[in-house]
């Protein structure tokens, strides 16, 4: 949150490509002590290592913001200089961690927590090879696992880097599997959006593409009408048709941060500021 809001404040900073850490990786304690490793323990180690790297990055950014050079560039509204300084902060080695997660996953065949390692690899990798291998492992071995559900939420953004054929094969494999309908709905949504993205902006879809797009859309609403994918499909039109100034806001029903039920409607009669926020 701190990081993201400051980027907005100092716009137009653009997220820089990850720069690997120069320091040697810390040695793993568990290797020396050799307690029995499981997919879950390796996953926890990788997560901890990533969290440490993120914390180092945040600390470096705090330090940078306190520096005279940063303040001077900010006062001068010199966005190029700010961008350059920001880009020089080392990022966590996401691809290195992802590759390690994938290698570890290979050692834990049959362990249900293998899915967590594959999900980790898929979540953080920028390399299409690692992403594809992780997704293929998930679809093949853990079609019912929530890790596959989470991975498929991001699949649309990955479709291009995976390549059309590999993406199409992956999507088909999930759709033919015994994955839950919500997971399949995510894949259908990914396929819809990848069709839309593959077409140059402003160019209409071909009749064939439009038919495929519409069929996927209809199937999402049919197999998982209450899923995130269905909300997204509806949300495409929602903004244009409903969420305009002057319209009555749709109700929000859910639980609060402590698990208690809460709804927007209960505040009717009051002025309400709805703030979509996060502390991540």
């Amino acid at each position: 949150m701190i990081l993201s809001s400051l980027i907005i404040a100092a716009a137009p900073l653009v997220a820089p490509p990850p720069v690997p850490w120069q320091e040697p990786a810390p040695t793993s304690v568990s290797e020396a002590a050799a307690p029995a490793q499981t997919a879950a323990t390796v996953h926890a180690e990788l997560r901890a290592e990533l969290a440490e790297a993120v914390a180092r990055r945040e600390a470096a950014f705090e330090e940078l913001r306190a520096s005279d050079a940063w303040k001077a560039a900010e006062a001068a509204r010199n966005n190029d200089a700010l961008n350059e300084m920001y880009a020089a902060i080392p990022s966590p080695d996401h691809d290195g961690l992802s590759r390690r997660a994938l290698e570890a996953a290979a050692r834990f065949d049959g362990d249900p927590d293998q899915a967590l390692l594959l999900e980790f690899a898929n979540e953080w990798a920028t390399e299409p090879e690692v992403t594809a291998a992780a997704l293929e492992g998930l679809t093949e071995k853990h079609p019912a696992h929530t890790a596959l559900f989470a991975a498929t939420l991001r699949l649309g953004y990955r479709a291009r880097s995976l390549g059309d054929e590999r993406f199409a094969a992956l999507a088909e494999r999930v759709l033919q599997s015994d994955a839950p309908p919500e997971t399949k709905a995510n894949v259908l949504f990914a396929r819809m959006t990848s069709i839309a993205r593959s077409v140059r902006r402003g160019t209409p879809l071909s009749a064939e593409q439009q038919a495929a797009h519409d069929a996927d859309r209809a199937r999402i609403l049919e197999i998982a009408p209450e899923s995130i994918a269905a909300y997204r499909v509806l949300g495409e039109r929602f903004e244009a048709e409903r969420l305009q100034i002057g319209m009555v806001a749709p109700n929000i029903l859910g639980t609060d941060l402590f698990g208690e039920p809460i709804s927007l409607e209960q505040f009717r009669g009051q002025v309400v500021v709805i703030d979509f926020w996060g502390d991540w």
């Binding site: 995130i228 949300g235 319209m247 806001a249 009669g269 002025v271 709805i274 979509f276």
Partner: peptide
């Protein structure tokens, strides 16, 4: 599922923070 969750999906929120201000009748103003 964080930013991919159902409420932000339904409200078509793709950037954070996003703010809506509603009057006493629940109308987006």
């Amino acid at each position: 599922y964080g930013t991919s969750g159902p409420i932000s999906a339904r409200w078509n929120v793709s950037g954070w923070p996003t703010i809506y201000v509603l009057d006493g009748q629940g109308v987006i103003r």
